[in-house]
């Protein structure tokens, strides 16, 4: 009972860990519980039904699982989750594909150029995200700055053949324009953690690999890539997670076949006014993201200890 006498003080370690813990509890765990609670209710007119009711001395707990049942039985939701995860994975993969060489050459360029290059990566953030995404609409017009060269080089034929665009003359409102927009928007989130890992790497390890008979290409795959794993994972997660729930970019650049979960959520809340269904969609989305993350995190820890 020492804290009653006033002699109790939090130990520094507890305080340091406690601050983010309390922050996450208030701003993440508590809202999540509220959403979870709504997902187990049903609409009562304009209100959400209470879970606990006390009438005639009987305390009743009512958990409505209708939303969850509907989510499982109605193909729309499952299909939309699938589409969301698919486009998030494709986006993160393209970001890695373009971001890795970018970060690599940035980290290996002369020290005095690196701040300028880093600035270049972050420069787009100075313009409103909405304007930048909107700009793609005119860029991808058939006679736009990007649309015209794509057509001139015949790339649109290839994209149409791959089913990425509905027809060669229409680049917008397609899986192509959606992925393009998301890759464009999220590329810096891939480049920055990769750059951080690659620029810290000990270059003598590459020399050691070459000294032992590895060609530059082998040294890259055997040493550089494995040692930048933490950067790859961080970048992939930073792109993948927000992409799963992305709403604005699919709205502006996506087409009918790119219905993603963010749009479904919006519709349930604001068109159907079905809060429990919307909450259910949100809860399941968090599970879709957190479960693979948790499994991955455990593997990471085991790999480091082993």
């Amino acid at each position: 009972m020492s804290f009653l006498t006033g002699s109790w003080r939090p130990r520094p370690r507890v305080a340091v860990i406690g601050v983010p813990f309390v922050w996450l509890s208030i701003f993440f765990l508590l809202p999540f519980l509220l959403v979870f609670r709504i997902s187990l209710a049903q609409m009562d007119g304009a209100l959400v039904s209470p879970l606990l009711t006390l009438s005639d001395g009987v305390l009743t707990l009512q958990l409505h699982l209708a939303s969850f049942i509907q989510l499982i039985t109605d193909d729309l939701y499952i299909a939309t989750y699938f589409v969301s995860v698919k486009y998030a994975l494709v986006t993160a993969s393209f970001c890695l594909l373009f971001g890795y060489p970018f970060a690599y050459f940035m980290a290996r360029s002369e020290r005095r150029w690196q701040p300028a290059l880093l600035m270049g990566v972050m420069l787009p953030f100075w313009t409103s995200f909405l304007i930048r995404v909107y700009a793609w609409k005119s860029l991808l017009e058939p006679n736009g700055w990007v649309g015209a060269p794509i057509h001139a080089l015949g790339i649109d034929e290839v994209l149409a053949f791959l089913g990425m665009i509905p027809s060669p003359d229409q680049l917008m409102y397609s899986p192509f324009s959606l992925v393009l927009g998301m890759v464009y928007t999220y590329l810096p989130f891939m480049v920055l953690p990769l750059y951080a890992t690659l620029s810290r790497m000990d270059l003598r390890l590459i020399e050691a690999a070459q000294d032992l008979g590895a060609t530059p290409w082998q040294a890259f795959w055997r040493i550089t890539v494995p040692l930048s794993r933490s950067g790859i994972v961080a970048g992939f997660m930073l792109v993948f997670i927000p992409c799963v729930g992305e709403y604005v970019i699919p709205e502006l650049l996506g087409g009918p076949e790119t219905l993603m979960i963010g749009r479904v959520l919006w519709d349930e809340f604001f068109s159907n006014n079905d809060w429990p269904m919307a909450s259910t969609v949100a809860v399941v989305m968090i599970l879709v993201i957190i479960v693979p993350l948790a499994i991955f995190g455990r593997n990471q820890v085991q790999a480091q200890e082993g």
């Binding site: 000990d202 003598r204 390890l205 020399e207 050691a208 690999a209 000294d211 040493i223 040692l227």
Partner: peptide
Amino acid sequence: FQSYALFP
């Protein structure tokens, strides 16, 4: 190598 440069 100096300080060995072992692959971590």
